[in-house]
Amino acid sequence: MAVPSAHEFHWQSLAQLPTGRVYHTLSEVGGQMYMLGGCDAAGRPCPIACPCLQGDRWINLTPMPTPRAGAAVAVLGKQILVVGGVGEDQNPLKVVEMYNTEEGRWRKRNTLREALMGVSITVKDGRALAVGGMGADLLPRSILQQYDLRKDVWAQLPPMPTPRYDANTHLLGNKLYVAGGRQCKRPVKAFEVYDTETRSWTTLPMMPCKRTYGGVMWDTAGKLCLLGGLRQGGGHQSSKFTKNVNIFDTNQGAWLKSEETVAMKTKRADFAAAFLRGRMIVAGGLGHEPSALDTVEAFHPQKKKWERLAPMTFPRCSVSSIVIRDRLLVVGGVNQVQPGLMDAALLKAH
């Protein structure tokens, strides 16, 4: 399949957000984007409406009953399940709520057994699988739990070998992959997979390096791609920005050798990353500059090189992003001027 050339990608500014936002979660139902929770410029979870982007305007919907930031979100049919996160008192939450996009209303659902933030969530066969998290005692959890919408029940499944929060999860067939994450702010290299049929965990080859705030994405061929971030040194060494790329091939069950991967052009962390039209895209973030980055680059799989794309309108980091209908939407975030950006932008290729 031919991929778009670099000059075919361009940015389009969307309507401004009602308020600046960071640490929000984006979700898509029926081609429309919903924004859930997040913090304002002062770092407080937003007790405001859940906006929906329709065309080029934001529609304020019914406010989420519990203000929160960093929530885990899963789409179950026409409903959006919102799990855990951080509340107004800066502590983890066990509250679970669901928004019905057709009825336009919220319902309280059965809570988690304990308050958790940094939960990772995915959906299989109409049920949500929630992995890990950090409790009120600031310790990581190894818990795996499954939510049944019809019964409104959370069931405990076999726990994963490595407790962690903020892990990256991905479902391939009957296997749930869990990569990286953190333990008490320290990054972990653990990489494990849960087989939903045998209900058992398998430990995979560890991630090549400890890194935080990197890009994590899965391609359509079942490859896990880790990009950039802050590499963590041993002992008292400080963190360093990297442009390193690591790729795990699930078919081979191994990490590709360094000579089989191509490093990004720019060292960066805390950026937007996505697959778009067959190309890996990275946008914005922080690097060896005094302010946030506006630069964007994309990997060309046939040429095997990274190419510059048009820069974003505003430099930013800590954004939330989502791909809907072959378009990358980048929403909110932080730059030096505005702690909570009110801007939203869309990247597409013609």
Rank of each mutant, 00 (worst) to 15 (best):
K94A: 06
P4W: 00
T203K: 00
P18A: 08
L224Q: 08
D249M: 00
G285A: 07
L204T: 00
Y165D: 03
G181V: 01
H350P: 06
N91H: 13
N251F: 09
K210F: 15
K78T: 09
D294Q: 12
T250C: 01
D166E: 12
K94C: 05
V73R: 14
R199N: 08
A42N: 09
L176R: 15
T242D: 07
M264C: 07
L17I: 08
D56E: 12
S258A: 13
L226D: 06
A49N: 14
N244D: 13
I48A: 12
A292W: 01
G37L: 06
D137I: 11
R231E: 15
M33C: 14
L341K: 02
V262Y: 14
K304R: 15
G135K: 05
D249W: 01
R164E: 01
R316Y: 03
Y99I: 02
L76V: 00
R186I: 05
H300A: 07
G20T: 02
M33F: 07
L53S: 11
L76C: 08
A274D: 00
R21D: 12
E28V: 12
R327L: 01
K151L: 11
R113D: 13
S318V: 13
V119Q: 04
P51T: 10
L93E: 08
P339A: 13
W218T: 08
W218Y: 06
V323T: 08
R109Q: 13
G84H: 06
G85F: 11
R68P: 02
G233N: 08
A49R: 07
H24A: 14
A274H: 04
A15E: 10
E260A: 10
R182S: 09
D249T: 02
P315M: 10
C50M: 15
L309M: 05
L309E: 00
N174E: 03
K151G: 06
R199H: 10
R279L: 09
Q32K: 14
C52T: 13
V123T: 06
R113I: 01
V245N: 07
A167T: 09
P315N: 12
T169S: 12
K304L: 04
A2H: 13
S5Q: 11
R231C: 15
V95Q: 15
G55P: 09
A221I: 05
G284E: 03
Q145H: 06
L53Q: 11
M117A: 15
A292V: 07
V153T: 15
E88V: 14
G104K: 07
V216N: 07
Y147I: 01
R316M: 03
V188H: 04
E297W: 11
L347M: 05
F9P: 07
G30D: 04
F299I: 05
G104Q: 06
L293R: 03
S318G: 06
F299R: 01
P187K: 02
L226Q: 05
Q338D: 09
D40T: 03
T212Y: 09
W218V: 08
Q90E: 10
D294K: 14
K265C: 06
R279W: 06
K304Y: 10
V188S: 04
C209D: 08
Y99H: 08
P140C: 07
A269G: 12
S142W: 01
